[in-house]
Structures are given as C-alpha cells and as structure tokens.
Write a protein that binds this DNA or RNA. Structure first.
Lengths: 236, 236
DNA sequence: GAGTGGTCTAGACCACTCA
DNA sequence: GAGTGGTCTAGACCACTCG
C-alpha cells in the first residue's frame, strides 16, 4: 500500500511493462484516476509525472496521457538497476562468478575515488558476469566497510543491492555513471572471453546514500560488442 | 517571468553552476522560499524537485536542501544538450565543419529508423566536430522534411537546436539515446583524425516532438579516446 | 462547450533531526 | 519542541483539443 502515488505508478508501470497496456493506448484522465483511487488530482499527477519521466507514458495537453513504445530488454536500462534485475528481465541465461571477496585497505586509486582518508578499510568484490555462455563483464565493486553489513560469496553471487535494500541499514539515494572507452588490461584478458577485442567499455559508478555520503565505487568493464547503454531524457 | 517554479529553478541552477553557491551549502527552507517568492510551498517544492532530479541539490528530511558537488565540463552531460551548448560551456576551442547538407529520399536503414513510409523526403546533414584542433566527432542528422523549417549551412554550423527552438513551430519533447561501440567505417577514417583507432563510440539519438512523433534520427560517432558520457540517476 | 492536462493555492498531518 | 522535508487535499483558473 504505502504511498498512494507510488501505488498508482507501480500499477501502470507494471501493466505497461507486461504489455497489458499496448503502446499508443490512452490512460484514464486525471480526474477519472483521482476518483478511481479515491484521491486528489495532484496525487494522481505525481504518479503520472513519474511514469512520464521514466519513459512509460507521454502527456499531451488537451488530449490525455498515452503509452509510449517501451523497448523492453534494453541493456542496461538507464538508471540504478542492478545486473540481476536487468539479466532476469532479459530472459537470457546468465551467471555470476565471484572471483574474489576481500576486505582491507584500498589501493591509492580506489581510495581517491571513494574519498577515503587514513586507515579506513573497504570491501572489495570482483565478479565476472557470464551471459549466453560467454564471460563478458568484469565488475569490481568497492564499499566503505563501516557503512554496510558483512558480505558473503553467496550474497555476491545473487544481488548485493537486494541484500542491502533488505538489510535496510543502508538507503541508496542517487548515483553518477561515467562511461568511457579504454584499452583492455591484462586482468580483462585473463578473466574474460575477450576474443580479439583490445578495447573495453568502462562504466564507473559512484553511489551515494540518503545522507549524501559516497559509499560505493564500482568499475564495470564490458566487452565492446556486447555493450549497450540506453538513456531516456526529457526536456521540461 | 513565466512559471514561478521555473523562475526559482533557474535562479538556483544558475547560482550553483556559476559557483556562487558552494557545494554542501544549505538552501533556505521551503517555507522561507515560499515567502521570499510570494508563492505556495508546493510550488517551491516543484522547483526543488527539478533541481534534485538534475543533480544540483540533495534533500534530507528533517534537515534541509544541500548543494551537491557538480562536475562542470562533463561531456556530454546527460540529457538533451546540443554540441554547441556543451562545447561552449567547456571553454575549449571548437569548430563545426558542415560536410554536406542535402534533401532527398532516405536510404532504407535511415527510413526504418525514422519510421518513414513511401516517398517522404528528409533533410540530411553531415557535420564534423573539431575540438582542440582534432576532428573527433562525426554527426549524421536526419530530419523529416515536412516537420521543420528550411535549413542552411550557416544554421548547421551554429546550432540546429537553437534555430528550431527559436522558430517555435517545433517543440522538442523527449529523446532516447542508445550508446554502442562499433568498428570504424571507411567514412569515419576519411572524415576524422582517427589515428590508429579501429572502433568508435556510437550514440544513436531518437528525438520526439510534443505530439510524440519521431522527427529526428542522429548518429553521432566519437573517437573512443575522446568519448565520455555522464549520467545522473536517482532512486525514488 | 465539454473535457483534457498545466499551474497554483492554503491549508493539513506526518516523520524526521537537532538542540 | 521547533523546524525541516514528504504526502495529501479540495479547490481554483488557465490553455489546449475536439466535435
């Protein structure tokens, strides 16, 4: 139940994702929705605004709200979605191999990325992502040790995000992604099925908590032929 | 003046961009802002929500709204910003060379991307972007001819977006970007300073109008060492 | 003219933080 | 307990679309 606007948002986001509402079809008007959910029009508008921001619908003044053509299975979808969420949605066979899970002092580069001073310890997780039988993505995660509950290999094999969200001590708030293209390293070649590719798509992810402290730095290295990033943007 | 919430948004976005409000500093409370702008709290909240979505500020319940560390000069900033906007903000010396500007029938690939049927004509613009003396980006723009006012080489050398926004017949609403990495083509090699690079970062941009018709398809091909894409995302 | 979404108001109650 | 942001309400007026 929770928030009314969130309920409305989920209702329609789910219907659109599952194709039960087809593209170009018209949503009920804001007044109708307000009556149906027993709430005020402004609350309905909050939900529709969210749907619009996330590329589910499009609103036209004087006409109504319409379902957009959503390309499902875009990888990775823009935003803060975890590998597991994306992989399971895509329906492809996938697997995560935890190469290493250790705790200790960060090397200087990571320390600077995480704004770490002095002798603070971190969790360092290295994972290889296998999709369709090929080792394609190398994920190197770094967390402030003091900020999260203890990790295990089993948790890393599933989804660290799901674990953190459930354990609820930690609230993820926002993130910044930087995408660049860089030469493959010796490590990439050793751990992945690189074929002849010499370059990698590198996504650096900086994740912040609710109180705006930086708590995670992740480097996600993708084989270029399998890399695809989708971004939906709206003018105001 | 226009909308109140837009005025408030611009006021603070400008102050933060120009560094007149330093990171971590606290904004006035929503009630104070409502008084100061002679408006209601909900309207102030709309402006703050926009600032928050765009990565300018961060709101903490019970405490207030705080300025985030904005990395200026990130190229390209997430969203619908044109090359000219980004280039001028970065302060680097830049130049646009209009390789060709023609109108006619699209080839089959572009026609399918633009959802063109039958004998509709398009504008096709090919531009080379030079930054710091190097030809780095190849932009191939395609517009439905019937949807926009006529283009000239001079307009293409400046900013097509500025021109379209001023001419006001056309209202850009939302866009979808897809980033992939692909092999360099013979055309890339001929028109750009590619050095030894064999791959390109390709950004396909699908731009829609207010009535949700697709009106532009652009392929933006970047030399990999100069490519950088930044995305700011928020959990709700 | 009826219906739609866009903006705005003046309140209300809540959960949270901090002194 | 005073102040903060988060949610919600029940209205209002406007600009726009369409028959």
């Amino acid at each position: 139940m929770e928030n009314i606007y969130w309920t409305i948002y989920r209702d329609y986001a789910d219907q659109i994702e599952q194709g039960r509402l087809s593209p170009d079809s018209k949503l009920p008007s804001e007044n109708q929705l307000a009556k149906r959910y027993g709430t005020s029009r402004e609350t309905v508008r909050k939900a529709l605004h969210l749907l619009s921001q996330n590329g589910y619908i499009h609103k036209i003044k004087g006409k109504g709200s319409f379902v957009l053509h959503v390309n499902k299975f875009d990888f990775p979808v823009s935003g803060l979605v975890s590998f597991k969420e994306v992989a399971t949605k895509s329906g492809k066979e996938w697997n995560t191999d935890v190469v290493s899970l250790e705790t200790g002092k960060p090397d200087p580069y990571v320390a600077s990325q995480l704004n770490i001073q002095g002798s603070e310890a971190i969790w360092k997780v290295v994972r290889v992502r296998e999709v369709g039988g090929e080792k394609i993505i190398l994920d190197k995660d770094h967390f402030h040790k003091g900020l999260i509950p203890p990790l295990t290999k089993d948790i890393c094999r599933e989804s660290i995000y799901e674990y953190l969200e459930r354990s609820s001590e930690v609230k993820i708030s926002f993130a910044k992604k930087v995408i660049t293209i860089e030469g493959a390293t010796e490590e990439d070649e050793r751990l992945l099925d690189l074929d002849r590719y010499a370059m990698m798509a590198v996504v650096r992810n900086y994740v912040y908590l609710d109180d705006s402290t930086l708590f995670q730095y992740t480097e996600s290295r993708h084989r270029p032929d399998k890399f695809r990033f989708v971004d939906f943007a709206r003018r105001y």
